[in-house]
Simulated scan of single mutants.
Amino acid sequence: MVEPSLWMKKVAANPGHSQWYIERFRSMARAGEDLAGEARLVDAMAPRGAHILDAGCGPGRLGGYLAAAGHRVVGVDVDPALIEAAEQDHPGPRWFVGDLAELDLPARGIAEPFDLVLSAGNVMTFLAPSTRVQVLTRLRAHLRDTGRAVIGFGAGRGYEFEQFFDDATQAGFASDLLLSTWDLRPFSEDSDFLVAILRPV
């Protein structure tokens, strides 16, 4: 039995949390705020028509953008309410409810490996700590050998960057590029955010 994610523990403690999160981003979108910075970075890295996995896709803001840009997108999230919102707000990608620690998309009829894996929105910090290496290993398993994973999360959320680097190495990744923002500012020891671009080894 896989330990429940910290996100689902939060939802269990506050059943309205998912809807609050969904409405927060819908409100920001109505206000014209820029919600696609992470997706623009991934789009710039991707060949046209790339196969992209949005791991921890939430209500679909990034996968929706990438699909509109012409990519073949599959989004997975553990929270059924977020997947329902993604289906409503961003038709086009294939959205699935699933735990990243048990990710097996070939079992769902998606056998082709992915060119890119995106995990934004602090997804890594919402994982159950006991599943972190397992999640990264499953992401690696779904990535083609020439592909890359792009993972971003903030400091001070219970997952130290050095531990993440160790976990990523254990899962079969090496770092290609480390940034401190989605708009390409360099990473340093005192950065409070990490965007790691990883390659399979």
Rank of each mutant, 00 (worst) to 15 (best):
K9A: 10
D54P: 04
D192N: 13
A128M: 14
R138S: 12
F173D: 00
A128W: 03
E84L: 11
F114M: 07
L139F: 04
G154L: 07
G32P: 11
A12I: 07
R185I: 10
D192P: 09
D77I: 00
R140F: 05
Y21Q: 11
G63K: 02
R199T: 14
A86C: 07
A29W: 12
F96E: 03
R108W: 08
G16E: 13
G152L: 05
G92P: 02
A39D: 08
F161C: 07
V76G: 02
P47D: 12
P15F: 12
S5F: 06
A155D: 09
A168Q: 01
P59I: 09
A69N: 02
H90T: 06
D115V: 04
E112N: 08
F173P: 00
G37F: 03
A196F: 06
L82C: 09
D99N: 12
F165L: 11
F165W: 14
R140Q: 06
L178G: 06
E102V: 14
G109R: 03
L139G: 04
G98C: 03
I110F: 01
A86P: 01
I22T: 10
L35E: 07
P186M: 06
I197E: 02
M8W: 08
G75M: 00
A13K: 11
A111R: 09
E160A: 12
P4C: 14
R185N: 13
F193M: 08
K10M: 11
